[in-house]
Amino acid sequence: MRESSPSSPLWEELVPGGAHWSGVLRRGTTLRLTDVGGGANVAMLLYNNEEKLERYNMADTLKAQHTAHLTAGCACYSDMGRVLCSITGDSVGWHDPIGGVSNAAMVARRYGALSYQEARNACHRNGYDSLLNEVAKYGLGRRDLVPNINFFSKVVVDDGGNMAFAGGHSRAGDHVDLRFEMETLVVLSTCQHPLDPDPEYRPRDVKLTAWYSGPAGADDPCRNRCPENRRGFANTDRLYL
């Protein structure tokens, strides 16, 4: 793959608020998500493009790295103990791995129902159906929707187990960089976070920028974050020998 950089990317694309997108990111490619106007949310699922039964595993990702949120230095694990992608850059500092996605009933209750027939591209969409529409393009269905990552969103949990959404967390221009360690099918939705208390339906735009950065080296901070990550990267490297 030809060399590139954030200033001279392989490609760029704007994903409008409330839309959904999917594509294959090759090993050694970095994808930057940029919150264009502030307050964005990107619900993302990850699958091994060569064997889609292998996919992102939230529980393994969190327990392997002894964390309840994701930020720079973290790796996103598959259910086979391999690293799908690593977070190599992050201007936000906290991304939610536990909040899930909105559904049609939730969106209708909070914002009112507004169909495509009524409003065309301004219709009210939800995260669950958006992700389902995208995975269907690859022969996947409801049983293949697993707990997702919500980039740009922060959810905190109190001592009683109550979850609260942190407003104003991501600002215009904030970004997160994901370096892909495997050939990965990326599926995402830009619908609002299910815990977002905003009474108005106004999902935000997100820009995608991809460049070739190369896979993780021996001294990589994500690889060396903890012993579990070193094992996860070794498992991944063996797949591409």
Rank of each mutant, 00 (worst) to 15 (best):
G139R: 07
Q117T: 10
V107N: 11
N150T: 00
K154R: 15
M106V: 08
K137R: 15
S130C: 13
V135L: 13
Y116D: 04
L145A: 15
N148D: 09
A113L: 04
L145T: 11
G141N: 11
F152C: 09
L114S: 04
A122C: 00
R120I: 03
Y138V: 12
D144N: 13
A119R: 12
G139F: 02
A136C: 04
Y111P: 05
V157Y: 01
V146I: 11
S130D: 14
V156I: 13
S130I: 00
A105T: 01
Y116A: 07
A108C: 05
L131P: 08
N103M: 06
N148V: 10
K137F: 05
L140A: 05
G139V: 10
N121C: 07
K137Y: 02
N121H: 11
N126K: 06
Y138L: 11
V157S: 02
R142E: 13
A113N: 02
Y111W: 15
P147A: 00
V156H: 03
A104G: 00
S102Y: 05
Y138Q: 08
L114Y: 01
V146K: 13
R109Q: 13
L131N: 10
G112K: 10
V107T: 09
A104S: 05
R125A: 01
R142V: 13
N103C: 14
N126L: 05
S115M: 04
A136S: 09
L145H: 14
L114W: 01
C123A: 11
L132S: 10
A122K: 07
R120S: 13
H124M: 05
G112A: 06
A113S: 04
G141F: 06
N103G: 14
V135T: 12
N121R: 07
I149Q: 11
D129Q: 12
A104W: 03
E118Q: 12
A108T: 03
P147M: 00
R143G: 11
